[in-house]
């Protein structure tokens, strides 16, 4: 490549336009606009833009501090910009405490999706990042279950006003969801603890919780003594409860698992007296017959067994008219 003195050459080459360029460009230019060149629509356009800007400003969501109560959920916002549509909350900025005791609520923030099944959780938007602090219950972050952690002081400040909004049954609903989720996950102790919380209340759901708790203790934790105590607690608190029949049967089963035959006999008699028309009566009688036999009361056992359609293992020892 040859070296050339560029400065002078360039200066000369760019000094003047080529001949005819001025006329050519003039012809190519559209006829110059008449008047002073001002656009008549410019002020109208500016006014429209200003009005638009004002409208946008007026409609732009502003940060809110306060609480809101919805169908099965409560919100407490602290300097938060958010919107609610159906069961979906979109958080743009600030901190939002959410309590859900009904159907799940979805929270979208910072591109993350969180499903609040039945829980208390605090959401915080720091820049573009969302932070989730589950306080109680089940929170699913992008499908993964996140357990509640200890409540930070900041989060507690938001949770307090939120819980004041909740109806009385909200914590029980939450505990039921937690228990069901724990059962599904095979976390029996967690489920028992959750049912114990519900059982502490004085409603039907407490009775249900006691029954479910006892069932878990009996079948999953293999703790029949604990299960029988739970069923007895249910019987004393809800003697005429809606679940008395199921509870009596389970208690009888717990007594059998403990080989406490006298107790089985006693519970079976009580069942027959209380639920004489129950479809499960044959089952109970059979259990009583076996218990009496175990107690070496063969005659009594045979008397009970004679009313059963299915033979019991000791039938051959019974007198012919009692078989």
């Amino acid at each position: 490549m040859s070296h050339v003195p560029w400065r002078e050459a360039y200066r000369q080459a760019t000094e003047r336009p080529p001949p005819g360029a001025k006329a050519r460009v003039w012809r190519a230019m559209a006829a110059p606009p008449r008047g002073d060149g001002r656009r008549w629509w410019a002020p109208a356009f500016a006014a429209a833009m200003a009005t638009g800007a004002l409208l946008v400003l007026a409609l732009w969501p502003k940060p809110v501090t306060g609480s809101a109560l919805g169908d099965g959920y409560a919100l407490f916002a602290r300097g938060a910009t958010y919107s609610v549509e159906g069961r979906q909350v979109s958080l743009r900025r600030g901190r939002l405490a959410v309590s859900v005791w009904g159907a799940p609520l979805r929270v979208d923030a910072g591109g993350q999706r969180v499903e609040v099944e039945s829980a208390v959780a605090v959401f915080e938007m720091a820049g573009e990042q969302m932070r989730v602090l589950p306080v109680d219950g089940v929170v699913l972050v992008e499908g993964a279950r996140v357990r509640a952690t200890s409540v930070s002081r900041t989060a507690a400040g938001d949770v307090g006003p939120l819980l004041a909004l909740e109806p009385a049954e909200a914590p029980l609903s939450r505990a039921e969801v937690v228990a069901a989720a724990a059962v599904e996950a095979g976390a029996w102790d967690e489920a028992v603890a959750a049912y114990a919380l519900v059982a502490a209340s004085t409603s039907l759901r407490a009775e249900v919780a006691l029954l479910k708790r006892g069932e878990l203790e009996l079948r999953q934790l293999s703790a029949p003594a604990r299960a029988r105590a739970t069923f007895d607690e249910a019987a004393s608190r809800f003697p005429t409860g809606a679940l008395a029949l199921e509870r009596s049967l389970s208690a009888l089963e717990a007594a059998a698992a403990l080989s406490d035959w006298s107790d089985v006999d006693r519970r079976a008699q009580a069942f027959e007296a209380t639920f004489p028309a129950s479809e499960r009566l044959a089952e109970v009688r059979r259990a009583r017959a076996l218990a009496l036999y175990a107690l070496h009361q063969v005659d009594a056992a045979c008397r009970v067994a004679q009313h059963l359609r299915q033979p019991v293992p000791f039938s051959p020892q019974c007198p012919a008219d009692e078989r």
């Binding site: 760019t14 000094e15 003047r16 336009p17 001025k22």
Partner: peptide
């Protein structure tokens, strides 16, 4: 009056 100037 300004064409050459602008071109240059």
């Amino acid at each position: 009056g300004h064409f050459d100037f602008a071109w240059r």
